[in-house]
């Protein structure tokens, strides 16, 4: 047995060497007797980050309690709930609130409706080429970004855009497709679809194919198999995707701003106006807090109804 022969049959992998070096360095930086606290050390950066957000939230809460002094254009000294009263009394803000909720709700509905068959085919197709094509089509829009995508939609749906050109071939007069509520929901669905597909795919992968085969041997055609087996078993993915799409849509800024043309503001647009146009920090802060509260309540309700387990966190059965 020569040494040379040994190295031929087994070479110590580079990955192991790197790990050895890292572990040696770590022993110096973080001695073993500190190992019981390793968990805390690892979670600390994330806690700090969240802590900064919480501090910011307190700051916003504080400033929401001061009205704007119109003579100096600075927040007034005294504490008051006037900003909240103003939001509550304003028909405009109620309309914005309702529009945001309805927009988010419709976006969740249509996004899941489109994402479910998309991810199902992506997961179940026997053809690797089809799967790759679907994945690429899913990821391309990610590289484009929301603003550019909204701009693209402006071009395609514009009065002299591609859609109206096609309609014109059939003798239809140019239609105004943009700057209304459906245009905003369309943009949001278009934006959210990849998120929903990516969240649904693992949930669908987790359903054994044999379960669907079993359903068909028990007498279910594919429609009934989908309704009675696939959708109930994909529930965790559907709830998770719905939550992400819902909260992202509820707080979205770019789509309502660009595709709504100023007439279809969501809450985030109203907040932006207060902070950066009228410089009424107090009112903007009050709106921001309302948005946080609304989102938290909605997420809380969903988790209470479906259980944290639906988000893949174990928990309730």
């Amino acid at each position: 047995m020569s040494q040379e022969n040994d190295t031929k049959t087994f070479r110590y992998p580079l990955r192991w060497r790197i790990m050895d070096a890292l572990e040696a360095a770590l022993d110096v930086l973080w001695p073993r007797r500190l190992s019981p606290y390793s968990g805390w050390a690892l979670i600390m950066p994330a806690l700090l980050l969240v802590g900064i957000l919480v501090l910011g939230l307190f700051q916003i809460a504080e400033s929401s309690l001061h009205v704007l002094d119109r003579s100096t254009f600075m927040p007034a000294e005294e504490y008051t709930l006037a900003n909240y009263e103003m939001v509550a009394d304003s028909a405009t803000y109620w309309r914005v609130l309702w529009r945001s909720l309805l927009g988010a709700g419709l976006t969740v509905f249509f996004t899941l409706l489109l994402a479910l068959p998309y991810s199902y085919i992506m997961v179940r197709t026997p053809s690797a080429a089809v799967r790759k094509a679907l994945l690429v089509a899913l990821f391309l829009p990610f590289f484009i970004g929301q603003v550019v995508r909204a701009y693209g939609i402006l071009i395609v749906l514009g009065t002299s855009g591609a859609v109206n050109d096609v309609l014109g071939l059939f003798g239809v007069e140019p239609v105004r497709l943009l700057f209304n509520f459906p245009a905003v929901v369309f943009g949001l669905v278009q934006y959210m679809l990849p998120f929903a597909v990516l969240m649904l795919a693992p949930a669908l992968t987790a359903i054994p194919r044999e379960t669907e085969t079993a359903a068909s041997s028990l007498g279910a055609n594919w429609v009934r198999t989908f309704w009675h087996v696939v959708i109930p078993m994909a529930k965790p993915g559907l709830v998770g995707a719905g939550l992400v799409v819902g909260t992202l849509s509820l707080t979205d800024f770019a789509m309502p701003a660009m595709l709504g043309g100023g007439s279809q503001d969501f809450i985030a647009n109203a907040i932006y106006d207060q902070f950066f146009r009228t410089a009424d920090q107090g009112l903007g802060a009050a709106l921001a807090l309302l948005l946080v509260a609304l989102g938290s309540i909605l997420v809380g309700i969903v988790i209470a109804v479906f259980g944290a387990g639906t988000l893949g966190m174990g928990g309730k059965k």
Binding site: E210, T213, A214, P232, M233
Partner: peptide, 20 residues
Amino acid sequence: TPPHRRSVGMVFQRLALFPH
């Protein structure tokens, strides 16, 4: 005849019961 029209009961390798 597709499976759901055949009068055939099957017990699967991993049972494939409906967990929900």
